[in-house]
Write a protein that binds this DNA or RNA. Structure first.
Lengths: 355, 355
DNA sequence: AAATAATATGTGTTCGTGCACATTGTAGGA
DNA sequence: TCCTACAATGTGCACGAACACATATTATTT
């Protein structure tokens, strides 16, 4: 069952022509009579020719510059993970001539995003990976990139009605829906649950609203609105201010509160509060394996987190660009990463970055 | 920041010698004076030479034959998934000269395993991927493979005190532990839980015993033995026999039964029973996304499954062989795949085989 | 000292592809 | 009829590594 590799030379022989001509047919370089062209195409089909990727890549020595337009990891530990994924992809893809430049912006500063995006565009890269945190600000760049035919991959934040090469991330709606399911599973009796947005600029964060909607819809779709009361709260945690006092008031006015669903990776703020006040009968669910969340999973104040796999988002984002540009694969426009449910007992298996 | 690729020729120039000599140093082919050898090695180090994998692979045209010694998918749908993973790895690795032969055995017949393993060994492959279901029978083959220096990767069933290239699969103990956690989370009140082994030859299935131990230990370690009663049952489901009657008796004699933990992928047998008898207050947790389990997750009779990611096991198994033999990477001796918790609300994201 | 053996080092071809360049073929204009 | 223009086709080199083979250098024997 030894599969003989079909080479350009083999095709040329069968077609009674030379490898130059076959090459011209393969790459549509013209200067081939229609008659020969068809004959060669037919034989290519028949012999099931597949270009030898190794030889191709060795010969052309083509290099690809990708740019990752991502938030500064120093501002929020969440953004450390995509960088790890980027680095992993970079390492694996270097031998194919792919290099990745980072253009780092401040996730709380639109202006910094705009100037970094300008710089990135000026570099005229072969592909872009973008965390499009600022909806309004990023739109004109999409246009620009489309005009210059630069494929761009979006991750973390899904944006409707644009045409990226693909989106990589989670289904925000469904992740809210899942959070509701888990909490309901653990709280068979009627109670109050809270959706909590911490330190977020909500009008600019459509995906958080989508999570909240998914969470609330779970109760509607399962006819549980009479049993559970869902309240929504926003809170800003400012260093130095008395968070505990502020949040204590919120809790005491919330009635029979038994569960809190934090829509971003800052569940550790609440876990800290619960620990300081020795509150053990409020279930807490949040997002992401950032170090402080891991700490509170380990000591039991966070019950579950949903892993958004930010590492995988960075990794797959770059890989999709490579798949498209280098390996010429078809790319599905959306790659939803799984909604991993993580709790103390399966935590450690998600910490291995090798995965 | 353009990284100039370092070639053998570059090293030869810097060392004032020829590429032939550098090549001899690189491959320890001898016939090089100690003096030159050291100089070349030093320069290789200095210039940070990394062989161009593409050129290497193109030139050598080395082919690798891997053999997958796996159970017949026709006997149990669980075994369909590793085959999909194998096929995926095969496709990605074909261009590196890797081919995979399947040696399929009957998972209920030791003899068929032995004869397939004999045949596989006789082929003298470059690497083996084995599901070592039969502990006693597989041991002598490990010896043989080690003597012939054939690396072998184990998956699905972990075996102690042998030296595979690596093991790929789950931590059975921890998965039982996790199952107990989930059920306890959903059942805050005291009740009885059942560990159920369906159609299994227990003495030959150490990993199922390990799961059971993990499950039971959860209650011990969390001081819950007074609250929850855990019972253990084995049942064989034979086509045609009245399963419902047999199982009905088991249930009714079990007292306040509120949860069943099925240790293999056959939770669907119980789900079917629960559906036929319209029992809705028994939580059911099992393993794996086989089609019939998916069916019962969708209609609510299975609450959770833990995904053993059999597809990933096949995929990674082959990839580890390739990483070791072809890409010369270091291989960690154990690769535990995550304990994915799957329920209706996040099911679909685990069904995409592309992941 | 010359012949031979043994060791050390250098050169050239090959893998499959892409592309530059060389060659052949043919039609049309002088 | 010869020359030119241009389309059609063929040839050869390069990419980086591996290996066979050729050549140079030194050591050993006669």
């Amino acid at each position: 069952m030894k599969k003989r590799i079909v080479r350009i030379k083999d095709i040329a022989e069968r077609a009674e022509t030379s490898k130059g001509t076959v090459d011209r047919v393969l790459h549509n370089r013209g200067r081939v009579s229609e008659e020969v062209r068809e004959k060669v195409l037919k034989i290519i089909e028949e012999m099931n020719y597949e270009p030898n990727f190794l030889a191709q890549s060795l010969k052309t020595q083509r290099t690809y510059q990708f740019i990752a337009l991502v938030p500064d990891p120093k501002t929020d530990p969440y953004w450390e993970a995509p960088e790890i994924g980027l680095a992993k992809a970079e390492k694996e893809l270097r031998q194919y001539g792919i290099s990745i430049s980072r253009f780092i912006f401040d996730p709380h500063d639109e202006e910094s995003f705009i100037s970094r995006a300008r710089e990135a565009t000026a570099e005229n890269p072969d592909g872009l990976l973008v965390a499009p945190l600022f909806y309004k600000e990023v739109l004109p760049f999409f246009k620009e990139w489309e005009n210059s035919n630069i494929p761009y991959v979006l991750f973390n934040t899904q944006i409707a009605d644009v045409n990226p090469l693909c989106y990589i991330g989670q289904d925000s709606y469904q992740s809210g829906f899942l959070a509701a399911k888990i909490l309901t599973f653990g709280l068979p009796s009627a109670c109050t649950m809270m959706v909590l947005h911490i330190n977020e600029d909500l009008p600019n964060s459509a995906h958080l609203i989508t999570k909240e909607k998914g969470f609330k819809d779970y109760f509607v779709k399962n006819n549980l609105t009479d049993k559970y009361r869902v309240i929504e709260t926003e809170i800003n945690f400012v260093q130095g201010e008395s968070f505990d006092e502020k949040f204590g008031q919120i809790i005491s006015s919330a009635g029979d509160l038994k569960a809190i669903y934090v829509t971003n990776s800052r569940a550790f703020e609440i876990a800290g509060y619960l620990e300081r006040n020795q509150i053990k009968d409020i279930k807490l669910i949040g997002y992401d394996l950032v170090p402080r969340n891991i700490h509170y999973i380990n000591n039991g104040y966070i019950d579950f987190v949903i892993n958004q796999n930010p590492l995988g988002q960075g990794y797959w984002g770059i890989f999709q660009l490579a798949n498209y540009l280098v390996f010429k694969k078809e790319i599905a426009p959306i790659k939803f990463l799984p909604l991993d449910i993580i709790t103390l007992e399966n935590l450690e298996y998600y910490l291995d970055p090798e995965q």
